[in-house]
Every structure is written in C-alpha cells, then in structure tokens.
Amino acid sequence: MKLPEVHESPEMLYRMCFASIRSKLLIAAIELKVFDHLSEPRTVEQVAESIQGHTENTMLLLNGLAACDLVSKKNGLYRNLPIAQTFLVEGSPTSLGEGLLQQAVMSERMLANLPQMVLNGSPGSVENEAGDSEAQWAQNAIWMANHERSGVAQQMAQLVAEIPEFPAFRKMLDLGGGPGIFGIAMVKRHPSMQGVVFDRGPVVAVAERVIREYTLERRMTVLAGDYNTDAIGYGYDLIWASSTLNFAQHNLDAVMKKIHSALNPGGVFINLSEGLTDEGTKPDFYVLCTLGWTMNNPMKAFDQGEIAEAMLAAGFNTVRSRTLNVGWGQMDLDIARKA
C-alpha cells in the first residue's frame, strides 16, 4: 500500500481548531486586568502578586499573550506591546476591554448550539436574553464610545471634512449615533456647524454626558426616539449613519425616504456599513461576526450595494460608494447627494 500523495497543508485547519485559545487568553487577561499591570516591564512574580494569581500559570498566560503579540517578553520581563497599551488598559479613552468582554459573551451565547441550529433552525431570538433593557442600551453606548474614538471616528471625520460641501454645512444629524462620537468628531472639524445626535432615550442620555465631556453643549443637542417610527428632525445639510440601518431592514425604503426629506436641497447623506461580497462570503470579519446574530434574529448583514440602491430609490440624485479599511476590516462608505 502506497502512502497518499498530499499537495495541501493542513496548517490552516489546525490553526482554526486552536483559534479559540487566542480569544480565551485575551478574555482571561482582560478579566484579570493583566494589561493594567504591564505598562512598565514586570516580572511574572510581580504580575502574579498584582492579580493574586498562581505564579506558574500566570507565566503560561503571559507567554501565551506574548505568542499572540499582545505583550513582549525580554530578559524575563513582560510589557504591553503598543496594541495592548492603546486598547486594553482599563480607564483609557480607547480601552476596548469592556466591549470585547460583552461581545465574547454574546457570541458564546448565540453560537452555543451551532450544530443544532444548522440542523433545526433558530430556537428564537436571543435579544432579550442579552438584556434588551434601558440599562443595557446605555451600557452598550458607554463602551461604544471607546470603540468609536479608537481611530474610526477620526478617520471618518477626516473623510467627511474633505467633501466639497463640508465648509458650507450648517447643521448635521448623527442618526442612530449612540454616544455621539462620530458627530462630535465632525462638528469639531467645522468652525460653526451644529450637530444633533438621534438615538433611543437611554442612549442619548449617554450622548449628552459625552457632549459635555467635549464641551460642545452650545453646538450639539440630542433627540430621542426610534427612527423607524419617529420624526428625526429637518433642515440638515449632512446626515451621518454608521452600522445602524440594520435595525431598519424591514423598513429601509421608508427610513431612507425620511432621511431624504430631512435634508435641505443639496444635502448629503453618508452611511458607513458592512457590505458583503463574493456571494455573501467576504469580508471574512463580517461573515463570521454576524453569523450568530443572523442565525438567531431576522436582522442580517447588508450586501455590497444594497444601501446605495436604497438611496437611489429614495430619490437621491447621485450616490458615490467606496470600500475602506477601518479598525476591524473593510466597510463600505456610501455618499448620497440630494438635488
């Protein structure tokens, strides 16, 4: 019997099988606040003492984090690498730890019965299990603020400031704006533009606090409601939306027309969303991160071009689309102009 001829490497399969160890290391280190103690070089004994941990297992955890390129190890001393120092130290305005913990819990819950869901379909929405309450919405907005100001809000504000209409804008709406970081970044780029953050009641309460933190009370206000059913205001020169129109998928045409009507003549609507390509198989980040949600809920990820088509159907004169690299992968930016 001859040995089989093999022309492929199984490395990818092994890496997929053990990929969960990387995420478990990250989540454990966040929960134990390990990164808070590594802004300066520390021995394993010092770290173990700080977290009240078992010395040898603390070393194994730290070595794993070094293997994941989150910390460095040199001459027995561990220290945060720049990515961990920027995004994983608690209390930093760009700390993503709390949000990553929430996402991990949600993903684990949604995919806990993946084989059964594939065979039998979803047992029903897990939204309420995740805490669809005012307190949960407000908490999500708090960690979302750090997520947005970890680079993407600055990137989008720069792009918006470069469009030719920007200097003449007088009033903008951050639709479904959460903590309002995108709106804040754009208002700060303009010498006089006023801004409104629209979202659910408990969320705009967070946005009000964030607006005060950035001392923009005289230039920014909030408006509470559900944009599927409530008025969103009028007289805007710019409406911005980011990763929010998924909540309007059952009502997208009506919401898009509402956005069109709320703009002044010559106004601009800019939307940042995922856009699935390759028959729904790419970009890999959005295919994977929305898998559990889509299996458990009617809400799904947008296909590339879906938002642009809805913009044109609502009466926008022109739509310009482009794909951008943001902090977690590729997203589509659609810029619609009203005649």
Rank of each mutant, 00 (worst) to 15 (best):
M295L: 15
D237H: 13
K257W: 13
N264D: 11
E274I: 05
G225M: 10
I239G: 03
E309T: 15
A248P: 02
I239F: 03
F269G: 07
T294I: 07
A310S: 14
F269Q: 06
N228I: 04
T221V: 05
G235H: 06
D253V: 00
D278V: 09
D278L: 14
A262Y: 04
A301S: 12
N264G: 01
L291W: 09
G305C: 05
G233I: 07
W293H: 08
K257P: 10
S261R: 15
R219L: 08
L216H: 09
P283N: 04
Q249H: 10
M220Y: 07
N296L: 08
D230T: 00
D226Q: 02
G267Q: 11
C289N: 15
K257M: 15
L272H: 03
E217P: 01
N246C: 02
H260R: 11
M256D: 10
L272G: 03
L223K: 05
D226F: 02
Q304C: 11
I232V: 13
A248C: 14
P283Q: 01
G266R: 07
G267Y: 11
Q249F: 13
N296I: 04
R219I: 05
T229Y: 14
D253S: 14
A254L: 15
R218F: 06
A254V: 14
T215M: 12
P283C: 06
G275T: 00
A310G: 07
V268W: 08
T277L: 04
F247A: 10
Y234V: 01
M256I: 01
I307G: 00
A248Y: 03
T229G: 09
A241D: 07
E309F: 08
V255C: 11
I270V: 14
K257A: 14
G225L: 05
T294W: 06
L216N: 11
C289W: 11
A310R: 15
G292I: 08
F247Y: 08
G292Q: 04
G280S: 04
M299Y: 10
D278K: 14
T229F: 14
D284W: 12
Q304S: 13
K258F: 13
L288F: 09
L223I: 00
